[in-house]
């Protein structure tokens, strides 16, 4: 199968300033991508799975020609993202995560028509294409309302409609369901599956493992600017399928306890998500091998200052691959 997207050793560093006034902010160097390489095959839905700040959006922006890489090469639909940027832009549809990005005093339909003109679509084709997309994304009845009246979900769907305007062979969707209510998120997922049915190549970013499992043919797990694993969800999960997983709810959590658990006998990986910083309410996800490990871990938790609230035994998921490989959790605190 041919590649639709090929990324070879791409690195990107940002030089930023933190706080301060005028020119006095502290300089900071952020290595957003470190030698990232992966390939997305034609007609595939490929997910970049990682927590916030992992480098997912930077990757999408480089592939969309909105950012230039410091080193490495990337091709989209056979075109080099730096040397043939115009051709790349003709081949892609991009939906970047943002609550803005539209003209709020224009209706959804007017916004799409404007971008259709910028994509040089013939007027009659653009009109029918816009009608089709509005229907596809359940925006038909709100198409003539001003965008300032749209909910976050409606703006997200409009964003995807804009990405599909020129019917591109390759789509980049940055966190397509973030902040959406379940109905809107389901609709967006349905559309992505429909696109796969049409043979489009979709590269999406997400920090939602369920979404990655549900939608993606293959997934790259990305953490701190590095791709740490690539494979089908099944292949990735097989890395931890031999292990056992528990999720522990605990009040009065502290980082020292997590470090202690990580050092425990038979513990493959452990990570915490703080749910309430005031009470120290946290969820610990622990991947381990052997019953002795469970006994040790529970012993540690019971003898800690924290109060054990619940313990659940779970089937390993993509998140456990992430926990095992990075010692971090995927999703932001809810």
């Amino acid at each position: 199968m041919a590649s639709s997207v090929l990324v070879e050793n791409v690195s990107k560093v940002f030089h930023t300033r933190e706080g301060g006034l005028l020119f006095r902010g502290k300089k900071r160097v952020v290595e957003a991508l470190k030698n990232v390489s992966f390939e997305v095959r034609e007609g595939e839905v490929f997910g970049l799975l990682g927590p916030n700040g992992a480098g997912k959006t930077t990757t999408i922006k480089i592939l969309s020609t909105l950012l230039l890489p410091d080193s490495g090469d990337a091709w989209v639909n056979g075109y080099h993202v730096v040397k043939e940027a115009n051709k790349v832009r003709e081949s892609i549809g991009v939906s970047l995560y943002s609550d803005r990005g539209f003209y709020w005093k224009l209706s959804g339909r007017e916004n799409l028509m404007y971008f259709a003109r910028l994509y040089h679509l013939e007027r009659s084709y653009a009109k029918s294409r816009i009608d089709y997309l509005l229907k596809l994304l359940d925006l038909e009845s709100d198409a003539d309302r001003l965008v300032e009246e749209y909910s976050t979900g409606m703006k997200s769907k409009l964003n995807i409609a804009r990405a599909l305007l020129q019917d591109p062979p390759v789509l980049f969707l940055d966190e397509p369901t973030i902040g959406l209510d379940p109905t809107a998120a389901r609709k967006v997922r349905e559309v992505i599956m429909e696109l796969r049915g049409e043979g489009k190549t979709v590269l999406l970013t997400t920090h939602n493992m369920y979404e990655a499992e549900l939608l993606c043919d293959r997934v790259a797990i990305i953490s701190k600017g590095r791709v740490i694993a690539i494979g089908t969800p099944g292949e990735l999960k097989s890395k931890v399928s031999e292990h056992k997983v528990i999720e522990v709810e605990l009040a009065g959590f502290d980082e020292g306890l997590l470090e202690m658990v990580k050092q425990g006998r038979g513990v493959i990986g452990a990570a915490a998500r703080i749910r309430d910083p005031v009470s120290g309410l946290a969820e610990l996800r622990i991947v381990y091998d052997g019953d002795f490990a469970l006994k040790d871990v529970l012993g540690m938790l019971l003898s800690s200052r924290g109060r054990l609230i619940s313990v659940k035994s779970l089937e390993p998921t993509l998140e456990d691959v992430f926990v095992t490989m990075t010692g971090e959790r995927l999703e932001a605190p809810s």
Binding site: A2, S3, S4, L6, W75, N77, G78, Y79, K87, E90, S91, Y119, H120, L121, E122, Y125, Q166, D167, P168, P169
Partner: peptide
């Protein structure tokens, strides 16, 4: 890697220049 892949989008067909 396929070089110069076919672009199947109307923007390449309409209204140039």
């Amino acid at each position: 890697m396929r070089q110069g892949g076919k672009v199947n989008c109307p923007s390449t067909k309409f209204l140039r220049g």
